[in-house]
Design a protein around this nucleic acid. Sequence first.
DNA 1: GAAGAACTGGACTGTCTAGTATGATTCCCG
DNA 2: CGGGAATCATACTAGACAGTCCAGTTCTTC
Lengths: 225, 225
Amino acid sequence: MEYRQRAAVWQPGQAVEIEGEGRTPRKRRAILAAATEVFLQHGYLGASMDEVAAKAGVSKQTVYKQFENKERLFAEIVLGTSDQLMDGLAQAYADTLEGATDPREALRALARRLLDSLTAGSVLQLRRLVIAEADRFPEVCGAWFNTGFERSLEALGEALTRLTERGLLRELDDPTLAAYQFAGLVMYKPMNRAMFAGTHAGPVAGELDQLADQAVDVFLAAYGT
Amino acid sequence: MEYRQRAAVWQPGQAVEIEGEGRTPRKRRAILAAATEVFLQHGYLGASMDEVAAKAGVSKQTVYKQFENKERLFAEIVLGTSDQLMDGLAQAYADTLEGATDPREALRALARRLLDSLTAGSVLQLRRLVIAEADRFPEVCGAWFNTGFERSLEALGEALTRLTERGLLRELDDPTLAAYQFAGLVMYKPMNRAMFAGTHAGPVAGELDQLADQAVDVFLAAYGT
DNA sequence: GAAGAACTGGACTGTCTAGTATGATTCCCG
DNA sequence: CGGGAATCATACTAGACAGTCCAGTTCTTC
């Protein structure tokens, strides 16, 4: 179960002290970390700038010195997460697929890792936030989707293509589509449950493993050599 | 393209006049219809009871006579939709699968119909609303998920089992899981796009057909006879 | 160590909203 | 057609919140 020990794909940043950092950037980071927490927990309208300032240990004036207004702060937070999520997923693909010899085992490991990572509380709350505000902030949420979500599935498509080149999968007409199909097989059920049924009701551990295995069975029935 | 002509799975109800209906129930229906529109458009916190009353053509007092407060009105609306959605989906299964002779054609028709129905604007907005408020109203949103979403996939599993019994599909160990896998193959990509990228950016028509066909190919590679 | 920038705390404005109150008006039913 | 209930228009209360302002304090930097 080596994959369960790994760092989560993304966690809302703590305001870590960085030695030699000036006061202003330190406070800016504290504000971003606090705002992330507050927005994820309460949503855009439910979040209050007073709470952000209090949680950051900063005066309201400082918040408004760093960020023009609530909308900009929201945008900064949402966009700031997509890089980190992407990096985490790219790492997951590399760890599980590159160098693999048995495609079934490799895909199972990937599926389990995706399930673990993406049903974590903070990732779910981020997804909820972006979905909820998709109409209020179409550019920001659209950008998050394009640069984070879609891009990470294209990357998975490329990783699958490398499996094909090594003779571990059948030829793929559309690698990105195959990636979406894999993701859909693995995550449609647990992701919907997690999104709709509050943050409570975590999945049973064994259920996720079973889900992963069965998704891989279907995927390989279509794409295995 | 016969399936494109069909009635949508669900549309936010207009306040239809029902002959012989008294004044009070008529106004109650008007309020529910107006509130549905307002909540879907602005979310729970963004919705104002004044706007609901105005849109329903009713005084605020009447709203509060029919519904104790904003929370109850929200709950009533969310729960009221799940039955209707379910009925629409059950109809889709029946129309496309029962009586089919060619499983590939039947599943393609079902996939296209699901794609058309569930990427419609109002259905998306409803999903967004429920997801966004899952933490604020865990019982209501959880109930919506259990009685609407999960139940409809169990129904699909039963419909698939009937295909099995008629020799059109391989034996299914877990019909509900197979249903989730089918849904995931068909909808993971377009549903995520639709959820994250505002209500704008409708999908290209041909893309959905292609998606449906390729999802069915994978599904039948695993479950076809 | 001094000057200037950044920060603090708290008060303040303007606006919005859930929910209540009231007296006049309209509708329904017997 | 008349009486009682439902509804209307409107005003009101109480609280929340985004964003601003200011006088005093702390940090950084030269």
